[in-house]
Write a protein that binds this DNA or RNA. Structure first.
Lengths: 220, 220
DNA sequence: GCATATTTGTCCGTATGTATA
DNA sequence: CTATACATACGGACAAATATG
């Protein structure tokens, strides 16, 4: 279940994992060009395999290719953020609304919440952010669809890059841990319709906050 | 808007387009291995670029890589079909339920329906199939989310491969043209909740039919 | 069970075109 | 406008894994 080290994956996928890590830790910033030659020698792989890794991340949405110019870390725009939240609304709310009571994913959501609360007290905001994303991934897995799960994970990764460039995880995550807690209680009680409604308001508020932070600093 | 000829796309993406075409026309059958050397010389590209094209199709879900063995046309399984329909239920129904009245995509849906009805009279079942998929893509675009659109297209492509291997497009599509017509009328009248309900029953019936056809022939 | 042929995985060198200083 | 840097694409090479006789 790890992803930076070698298993049955080939080199390109492992390299893609390394790049993913660099993106969410902020080691690579939006707009930055990823030069083939430089990165290849840095990561000690050939340019060919690096290009294959690029293909993976490009289709995941975290990198962008400009023809004959190279690949760049995708810079989040207002419209892309709006899009990500539209996706979240359809998928997360849909998954919650149709969720079965006592679904195992509810326990995963609970576990993620507890991790978030613990990290909040240290405080370790990167971990809070990770736990929060795992919480929402758990919500999606209520739909029991592997395809939805991986797609959703890609979309969330995009949002995370935007968070990094806002470098204000605390401000963005803190207000929501409590609300997610309430949502989880509703799930545990099998009150799915109410949970779906709660999630809707969560997403609306979160979207507003992200857009506000976004507009406050970097433009585009 | 074409996709087999060259635009601003690079070679690997164009090759991916060619392979996509081969897959939905049945020129490549599920389970078949796509040999790097053979395909590269056939398509007159280098093995490296072919491998990049593979990455794209693998991520789209139509091809599958088995480490150190090569890439194969993904063979649809019962669980993958179930998954595809779970995805469709969440996304299509979600998009329809929240759709705005008079949304431009409704006209697209109408146009696709008319194309399907025309092709049905020729009869040209491949075109009926294409029009049907465009109809459902139009439903998804009611959500105004580019990311949902392309994801959904990939998922539908998978289903289409399953259809090809069932080589019974007539039997699978014909009963539904009329039902989609009714659905479109509801959309045009702004009765989104009823349309969403209609779509739910459509998907349930379609899923049953596909699974039945599937179980009747090829195993796995 | 073994030796051999085939194929993937990965790398390198290089030619060509495109964008930028 | 020339020069330079870089992405794009190709072909060949070789080790390692896999399939075949």
């Amino acid at each position: 279940m790890t992803d930076t080290e070698g298993d049955g994956l080939d080199l390109a996928e492992r390299i893609a994992g390394v790049l993913r890590e660099r993106l969410i830790t902020g080691a690579a910033v939006p707009g930055e060009q990823l030069s083939e030659a430089a990165l290849a020698s840095d990561l000690e792989v050939s340019r060919n395999t690096l290009r294959e890794a690029f293909r993976i991340l490009i289709h995941e949405g975290t990198l962008e290719r400009i023809p004959n110019r190279g690949v760049f870390v995708r810079v989040p725009s207002v419209s892309s953020i709006l899009d990500v939240f539209r996706v979240r609304r359809v998928i997360e709310v849909g998954a919650v609304r149709e969720a079965l009571p006592k679904h195992p994913a509810i326990a995963d959501a609970r576990a993620a919440i507890e991790r978030a609360k613990q990290a909040q007290e240290i405080p370790e905001w990167t971990i809070v952010g990770t736990a929060n994303m795992e919480f929402h991934s758990a919500l999606v897995s209520l739909a029991d669809s592997p395809r939805l799960n991986i797609f959703f994970q890609n979309v969330l990764a995009e949002l995370r890059i935007a968070f990094v460039s806002l470098h204000s995880a605390e401000h963005l995550h803190a207000p929501f841990v409590e609300q997610n807690e309430e949502l989880t209680v509703l799930l545990e009680q099998g009150r799915m319709t109410e949970a779906a409604a709660e999630l809707e308001t969560y997403l609306a508020r979160s979207e507003r906050l992200v857009l506000a932070s976004f507009g406050r600093m970097g433009q585009s």
